[in-house]
Design a protein around this nucleic acid. Structure first.
Lengths: 342, 342
DNA sequence: CTGAAAGCGCTAACAA
DNA sequence: TTGTTAGCGCTTTCAG
C-alpha cells in the first residue's frame, strides 16, 4: 500500500478557498450552512473540501465565534454502572441539539474533581453537569463564576450552585426504613462500601437511621469494605456480618451490587429470604433482572436525571440564562421478593 | 445569599496583567511555568490570578501554540464493563503526561463512529485511540490524514492504520475450542448477542468453529439476542437453547455477562456443571468473582491494552512520529470450575 | 529577566 | 449572494 504524499501541514479554510476559487468567508458559510450561498458555489466548495479531506479547526472557530458546543460532564466513576446510565440520558437529549458531552472522571476525589473542573472550564464549555452538591470551595467558586449553566445531578439534599436534578437520598433512606419496619423486621444490619466521599450513600444511611429511630430502632451491626469486586465484597461482608450477628433479620446494603452478592450468598446457603432474613439494596441496576430472585431496591432515576439535566443545559443554551431550576425526582420503591409482604 | 456583581465577561490574561502590573507575556509565562521569571513577579501574578479567579482560555492557547493536550478515545459503549477498564488503563498512563483523554461513544455504529471521529479530529487532538480495526472508508481516510499518532485497540486481526494494541480474537476462539474439545465435550452450542458490528465477537466465533472443525465437530445450535439486561438474556437464552437441544454438553457464550446468566440458570435448576454441561464465556470481568462458581473465561487484557495504547500515544507525542507499533497481548485461559478438568 | 509585535485559523459585522 | 476587514485570547519570536 503506497502512501500518498501526506500533507504535513493540516488543511485550512484557505486551502479549500484556493481549490474552489471561492473566498474563505463563503467557504466558511458553506461548511457551516450559514447564510445564503448559491447552489453552484456551495457544490463547488463542498466538492473541494471533500476532495482535500478538509476537517475544520474547531479551535479557531470557537475562538472567533466565542461559542463552544461542548458540555462538561463530571462524574465520580465510570465503572459504577450508575454513571454510564446518566451519560446515556445526557447523550440522548444532547444528540439533537448540536451540543457534545465531554466526560471527566474524579474517582470520588474532591481534589481531582477540582482539577478536572478547572481543566474542562478552560475549554469554555456551554454548560456543566456535575455529580453531587459537595465540592471544594474553589470548585464552587469556579462553577459560580463560569457564567454558564451548571446542573448538579443525582442529589438534591443541599444547596446547588445553580440548577439541580436528582432525588433526595435522605428521604430514600427513610422510605426504605419505613418499608422494612412496616414489614415487621426489627434487627437490622447495614452494609456499605467504605467511601468517605460518597455523600449520597451517607445521606441514605442518615435518613435510614432517623426513620428507624422513630420506631425506637437502631442499626444493630455494620460492615464496610472498599475496593475489589462489589459482588464478591457483598458475599464476604454478608458472611462476616451474619457470623458476627446471627440474629439479624434484615440487611440494608448501600448499593445493589453488594446486595446482589449478599443475595447470592443467602441463596447458596439456603437462608430463608425473605422469611428469616430480608434484604434490600439501592439503585435499581439492570443487572438485578438476571438474578434468580428480585432484590428489593429503589430506582434512582438515573436515566431520567441525565435527560433532565441535559434538557436544562440545552434549554438555557438556546434561550439564554434562566438558572436555578431544581428538579426533584421521586425514586420508586421496588419491594421485589426479598422483603416480606405486609 | 447576595450574589457578587458577577463579571459578565470572562477574564482574560489582560485582566491579570492589569491587576498585577505585569505584561501579558510575563503573566502567560508564569501561568505556564515557562521561561525564567523572578520570584517576586511570579508571586504577584499568581496572587492576582487567584484573586480574580482567572481560568486560562485553552482555546486561545491551543490556537496560538498549535498544541492540544487532548487524546481522543473512541469506543463503542460505556455500559459494557469492558471499555471502562480500558479507559482506566489509559487514564493511569496519561495522568502524568499532561495529556487528557476525551471519550466519544459510537454505540457500535460505523456511521456514528465516523461522525464522532470527525467531531473529535476537528479539535486537533494529539492522538487517537480507537476501538477495533473496522471503520468506514471515510473514517480510515481521516485517521490516515490526521498526521497524529493513531492506536487501534482491542483487536489485531487485520490491518491497522498506524499502531495497534490488542489480542487476536480469532485465536482466542480457537484456543477456547481446543480446551473444550480436549476436555471431552462434543455437542457444543453457541450463545451470543446479536450485533452485526461486534467484529471481535464474530472473529472469536470464527476461530472457535475453525478449531472445532479440526476435530470434525461443529456448533450444534445457536441462540442470539439483543438489547436488555445481559444477565437476564443469558438466563433466557440458556433456557431456550437447552429446551430446543437438550443433548448439548457445552455452551460457549460470546461474553461473560450472558455466560454468568447461564451459569445462574444452571445452578438454579440443579444442572450438573461441569459434569453434564460445560460453560465458558469471554472477557474475565470482575463481576465473575462474586458468582457462586468460577466461570471459565479468557481474560481480554483490557487494562493492559489501555495502558499500552496510552504509552504509544504519549511516547510519540514526546519523541515525534514513529508509528506502526503493533503489540499483541496474550489472553490467558481461565478454566475456572465450569469445564471438566482433563 | 521582561516586553512588543505578529499571527494561529476562523467568524462577526459590515460593505459591495 | 459574495467579499473585506478586524479581531477572538493566547503564544511565538525576537528585541531589549
Amino acid at each position: 500500500m503506497a502512501k500518498d504524499p501526506v500533507p504535513r501541514r493540516t488543511l485550512t479554510l484557505r486551502d479549500v478557498s484556493e481549490a474552489s476559487g471561492v473566498s474563505e468567508m463563503t467557504v466558511s458559510r458553506v461548511l457551516r450552512s450559514r447564510g445564503d450561498v448559491s447552489v453552484s458555489t456551495r457544490e463547488r466548495v463542498l466538492e473541494a473540501a471533500r476532495a482535500l479531506g478538509y476537517v475544520p479547526n474547531k479551535i479557531a472557530g470557537a475562538l472567533a465565534s466565542q461559542r463552544v458546543n461542548l458540555v462538561a460532564v463530571i462524574i465520580p466513576s465510570l465503572s459504577n454502572m450508575v454513571f454510564p446510565e446518566v451519560m446515556t440520558g445526557i447523550s440522548d437529549v444532547l444528540e439533537d441539539t448540536g451540543l457534545q458531552p465531554v466526560v471527566g472522571v474524579t474517582n470520588y476525589s474532591p481534589e481531582r474533581e477540582e482539577k478536572v473542573l478547572y481543566e474542562m472550564l478552560s475549554w469554555r464549555p456551554s454548560g456543566v453537569i456535575i455529580a453531587g452538591l459537595e465540592h471544594t470551595p474553589a470548585a464552587r467558586a469556579m462553577l459560580q463564576n463560569a457564567g454558564i449553566p451548571i446542573v448538579e445531578v443525582m442529589d438534591i439534599d443541599g444547596t446547588p450552585v445553580d440548577s439541580a436534578v436528582g432525588i433526595s437520598h435522605f428521604r430514600a433512606g427513610r422510605h426504605m426504613a419505613a418499608a422494612i419496619v412496616a414489614a415487621g423486621y426489627r434487627r437490622i444490619g447495614f452494609l456499605g462500601t467504605m467511601m468517605p466521599h460518597d455523600h449520597r450513600a451517607r445521606k441514605r444511611l442518615e435518613g435510614f437511621e432517623e426513620e428507624l429511630a422513630k420506631s425506637g430502632l437502631e442499626v444493630q451491626d455494620r460492615e464496610f469494605y472498599s475496593g475489589g469486586s462489589q459482588l464478591l465484597k457483598g458475599r464476604e461482608m454478608t458472611e462476616a456480618i451474619l457470623t458476627r450477628s446471627p440474629d439479624l433479620d434484615f440487611l440494608y446494603y448501600s448499593n445493589d451490587m453488594i446486595a446482589a452478592g449478599g443475595l447470592l450468598y443467602c441463596l447458596h446457603h439456603g437462608i430463608d429470604v425473605p422469611g428469616k432474613l430480608g434484604l434490600a439494596g439501592f439503585n435499581g441496576v439492570e443487572l438485578l433482572e438476571g438474578l434468580p430472585c428480585r432484590l428489593a431496591t429503589m430506582d434512582a432515576c438515573r436515566h431520567e436525571i441525565g435527560r433532565r439535566a441535559a434538557e436544562i443545559i440545552a434549554g438555557q443554551h438556546e434561550a439564554g440564562a434562566t438558572g436555578g431550576i431544581i428538579t426533584e425526582l421521586e425514586p420508586k420503591l421496588q419491594p421485589g421478593d426479598t422483603i416480606r409482604s405486609t
